[in-house]
Design a protein around this nucleic acid. Structure first.
Lengths: 350, 350
DNA sequence: GCCTATAAATGGAACGTTCCAATAAATCAA
DNA sequence: TTGATTTATTGGAACGTTCCATTTATAGGC
């Protein structure tokens, strides 16, 4: 069935009775060829079942049209939303981005990046895996391939980053919690090898500072950025002598975990313990109870990242401005007032 | 900063004082090279920041090591799980799969496939978009590139498919519902342009038939395979004069939608209305109430699909056996007994 | 010392494109 | 008519690899 050797531009040329150059021109939609000739060539292309060999073309052209998207955790719907936002703008530009998953593993990430580079990508949008070493992108930068970080960035890298205003988001959320009367607050999940972690935790701490929550009444529990991590965080926090009554979670996955763990203990999120998430994934709105979360406009950030990348490629530069996206607090049902709040910070733990 | 022109095998040869052929041999890990020479070459490679040009190599080798994964909806965690399963086995084989999303759009799918083919993929694992035309893969088959369908298949295609036993899964679920005393059953979501839909609906109908649910007591509502679709299904079903008391949903997303819509009406899934999902995504177990669902071992199917693909590539064939994965019913809390069940099918709607 | 066998390294011709410079054909100005 | 201009088409040299057929170096047997 399958045609033996795959057809090349020369086969088409023979079939159509023109030169290979003419075929090439037709393929590129050049206006230099007579319309009738173009038609003839296109028919030949169809007849022989030709498939364009982009590898060969790139050998001469030196600029491919593939863009790689390296995602640290595809199973987190948050990143899927991000990817979808990017795809929207790339599609409009006639580009097909290739997505690769690193599963939060720096070694895997290394392999993925290498493979993408060998494929000759025109640019890379990366949400780096936890524990990525500072030098991981040195070679790519040296090769002059534009990179932009999405959502996450690296400690001291000059690579442009597109991310939400994590500090402010955390501040807003914490303020909200305090406004509800909570005086013993926790920050759940994430780990200090992530820059985002420091941003979010920083916002939390600043709000505590500014609104009079003493250090002794703040509980900070690092943990996996997943449901399971969230469950673990709640358990350790509640084991303390004076446990918190509210928590800001590193992300929504952690928040879901916390709510799960609450339920397991017969407690209800919102009335017995307040929880706020971060990222506002689609699910947050539909959860039971609906999760109050910091909305970051995920798809919008994806679009922005894609635009920045496109501009970098077009202007052949490897530099660009960072972009900090606006955030807002989506207030729902997962954090009611502190039930035993009377005076300020004097109530005992149950 | 960036080295002007990118380094080639010849630059390395010059740097290391050997011929390009030697460099090529080293790159391929040939045992023909004296170890000391290899070391020298590898050092040169490091020094000049060389990146391998796979496009150029493929021009000669005619077999690439990239595999494309075409997914119809990345935001559905179900497909993300599938992708993760596949990645596991490809990683072990030293292959980096590229994932592309079609967002359930056949036109987009066409573009994606074209792009992947131009890139010279060695094989394609595809979960076809809704409304894919029968001829969509003809050219790829003609080019001799192996394809396997995952989860979904096309009406009359000879392309091997890896999928769960949808018919049996639906039968099991329906049987469970009937066993709980329900007599007016619904099948929610999905649409008849999907082969899976007919498989699952078929299982549902067969169970109804076998266990004595007359056609008049079956409600079938097509709809989007998403939360929103599920909500719509419930609404239409409950508007009927004798509404169903239980539903088997096309997939978990639909089931979540149904539960949401129930809650909006002040009804509770499990006690007021029974709902069963399909696919058993990770979320199902954690939902409130936990969703009873047909477990299909998603990641396992992904692994299987990857293995089949690997074998096809290795044996240079384009044919393979279909594979139907075993299913089981994960019984949780979302379907209690029919509350007004006394006699058979005589209770009036609320 | 010579011949042969083995090991290590090499030059050159592909592979399928693009694109420049050149040609051929058609049109126009005089 | 002739030369200049424009419009279509074309050959050939790259691009960065691989791999075959050679060459060169090293060792062994006598």
């Amino acid at each position: 069935m399958a045609s033996r050797a795959k057809a090349t531009i020369l086969d088409i040329a023979r079939e159509a009775g023109v030169s290979k150059s003419t075929v090439s021109l037709v393929l590129q939609g050049s206006g230099l060829i007579r319309p009738e000739t173009a038609v003839k060539v296109r028919k030949a292309i169809e007849d022989v079942g030709y498939v364009y060999n982009r590898g060969a073309a790139n050998l001469r052209k030196a600029h491919s049209n593939v863009i790689g998207m390296v995602i640290n955790d595809l199973t987190n719907p948050f990143f899927a939303e991000l990817a979808v936002g990017m795809e929207r703008v790339f599609q409009a530009a006639g580009i097909v981005p290739f997505i690769a998953n690193t599963a939060e593993n720096p070694v895997r990430q290394e392999e993925v990046l290498k493979s993408l580079m060998e494929q000759g990508v025109a640019g890379l949008i990366v949400s780096p895996a936890r524990g990525t070493t500072p030098g991981a992108f040195r070679r790519i930068e040296a090769a002059g391939v534009p990179i932009v970080f999405a959502m996450r960035r690296l400690p001291e890298s000059r690579i442009p980053a597109i991310a939400p205003d994590n500090h402010r988001g955390a501040y807003l959320a914490t303020q909200h919690l305090i406004g509800k009367g909570h005086r013993r607050l926790a920050f759940f999940g994430g780990s200090s090898d992530l820059v985002v972690y420091h941003d979010r935790l920083g916002g939390f701490l600043e709000a505590c500072e500014a609104l009079g929550i003493p250090a002794a009444d703040r509980t900070i529990v690092e943990g996996e950025t997943s449901r399971r991590g969230g469950m673990a965080c709640l358990e350790t926090a509640l084991a303390a002598p004076e446990p918190p009554t509210a928590a800001l979670c590193f992300n929504d996955a952690v928040a879901f975990g916390v709510m799960l763990a609450l339920r397991k203990r017969g407690l209800e999120a919102g009335t017995d313990f307040a929880v706020v998430g971060f990222d506002d994934v689609a699910e947050a709105e539909h959860y039971m109870p609906a999760l109050t979360s910091v909305a970051v406009d995920t798809a919008g950030l994806g679009e922005r990242a894609a635009h920045v990348m496109l501009k970098m490629i077009q202007s052949r530069t490897t530099r660009a401005e960072d972009h900090i996206g606006a955030v807002s607090l989506a207030i729902r049902e997962s954090c009611g007032p502190d039930r035993n709040a009377r005076g300020v910070g004097m109530g005992d733990a149950a």
